[in-house]
């Protein structure tokens, strides 16, 4: 299977790898997937509470190259977006950007779920709706 240049670049030089402090009120964490399924994605956002803008995003992913690239790309896209803008990120945009083959579409779904999970966690912490 030949992967796109963009995918390979995100895989080899992943952006925003790391861990944010879960204890902070303005940090939201999304953890999706399961080791048995071969994919676990953890995506975190740090939100500027005044502007509602995501000022930092980090990820760690256990998975194939497409899963790692999808989460790396997601963190890049998240930075600088408002919560509402972030909620609008669609998995098909990731599929297109990385030219994911059909068998890897679930990796982009996982990334979208991780984004939504992180936002939900942030909102719950801050009692927002």
């Amino acid at each position: 299977m030949a992967y796109s240049e963009k995918l390979l670049d995100h895989f080899k030089n992943p952006k925003n790898v790391g861990t944010l402090d879960k204890g902070k009120k303005n940090v939201g964490t999304g953890l999706v997937g399961a080791p048995e399924c071969g994919d676990v994605m953890r995506l975190q956002i740090e939100v500027d509470e005044d502007s509602n803008v995501i000022k930092d995003a980090k990820f760690k992913t256990f998975g194939c190259g497409s899963a790692i690239a999808s989460s790396s790309l997601a963190t890049e896209w998240l930075k600088g977006k408002t919560i509402d803008e972030a909620l609008a990120i669609d998995n098909m945009a990731i599929v297109e950007e990385l030219a994911l083959p059909p068998v890897k579409i679930h990796c982009s779904v996982l990334a979208e779920d991780a984004i939504k999970g992180a936002i939900k966690d942030y909102q719950e912490k801050n009692n927002e709706k």
């Binding site: 992943p14 790898v17 953890l31 080791p35 676990v40 994605m41 760690k60 992913t61 256990f62 790692i68």
Partner: peptide, 10 residues
Amino acid sequence: HMRDLSPIWE
């Protein structure tokens, strides 16, 4: 490299 990236390793 992969373990550095892996949340379950962490």
